[in-house]
Design a protein around this nucleic acid. Sequence first.
DNA 1: TAGTGGTCTAGACCACGGA
DNA 2: CCGTGGTCTAGACCACTAA
Lengths: 229, 229
Amino acid sequence: MSITYREVKADILRQITQGTLAPGSAMPNEVDLAASYGCARATVNRAMRELADDGIIERRRKAGTRVRQNPIRQVRLNIPIVGQEIEELGATYRYALVHGQAEPAPNWLRARMALQRDDRVLHLTCMHYADGAPYQHEDRWINLSALPEAEQHDFSEVGPNEWLVSTVPFTDAQISFHAVQADATIADYLDCTEGDALFQTERTTWLEGRTITFVQLTYRRGHRVTMQY
Amino acid sequence: MSITYREVKADILRQITQGTLAPGSAMPNEVDLAASYGCARATVNRAMRELADDGIIERRRKAGTRVRQNPIRQVRLNIPIVGQEIEELGATYRYALVHGQAEPAPNWLRARMALQRDDRVLHLTCMHYADGAPYQHEDRWINLSALPEAEQHDFSEVGPNEWLVSTVPFTDAQISFHAVQADATIADYLDCTEGDALFQTERTTWLEGRTITFVQLTYRRGHRVTMQY
DNA sequence: TAGTGGTCTAGACCACGGA
DNA sequence: CCGTGGTCTAGACCACTAA
């Protein structure tokens, strides 16, 4: 065995970072590269395919492969379960159910979750603590038409997120991040001052086209989401 | 050709979502799967490898393959160039350099960028507008020891981000998201009220171990970052 | 229409790591 | 030890698309 796909990939990447292969320039085709590296085309193909997945190069049939002008900058962001997130900080996790009630969906939520007129939802409010201090406020709505068993479930010990993850094994989701000002209620829950800037995540989750749940997660003051690439 | 790796992947995914393959359960090995699908092992391998990359299954040599207990939830987040981001909204982009000056690095920045005591930095303040309205405030520091040519460059027409992307082709970076309260200066730039909650991104960028640049991007009120998975 | 990447195959050897 | 996934090979056919 002469050379691995990892070595080919690393070598090409080196040429790009060192400027030997300039942004926008065309690269040799796979057959030629395989010949020059002395390996099979499949090996070159895998290296190139991964570089394309990473957004470094751009491939089109017939047109060939080019170094991207502006490498696509993308990050893999892990969406942690809050309990695990807190324990990874080395803190003790505590969960509390503040409020839970089945009710008709309010109008703004019907629009947001694309619900029918008479759909009912389970509204849960929870708090998550790290070493006894407020960490995250969770405001969640579960579509009872899609997930009727939620109404019978007891959320006083295990949070709805954990329960949903183990009950609905795989889903699509839309996530958004933004900043909100703490109102009096949230400030009280998160032990901060009314008007403080807080980081908030919203997530809507679908299973095969049906909206399962919508959640607003508001974090304690100063929370950061961090990524590398 | 009997079956594609995409079909194998889709079929396995279907079995997981429908509960035929329960979380934590072991899967057949590649040879057996290939036999049952009537395809080559390489085809099954590619399907399984992608599922593993997606965080759906877990593979270990000798131990075999299992369905993950809690599928890793991860998103690919695109980091757009602000001009492109604004034009994708269908708005007209305008850039303005507010301030630019080379100066000794202040202490907090030296710590943040891991600079030497006498390193100098180029401090740039810029504004990005969408249809004439403030969109993003950019506060950037460039390490002149690592990138001396920045000092001679004219940033009055092209923003530092665009220039950096085309000048320093590939880098490592750390990104963080959080919420800040607008101070008087930022409120003025972004045409909002002092105390408003604003979404802020911080990014530090390295090239082969050397810190290149640190930037704080503060967005207009109500900005959201959205992702799917 | 022809060149390029996309994919499958059958077979092989190897590295890892549980038993 | 030895079963499992990881990878490479040489060859083949195909799908897409720029010219």
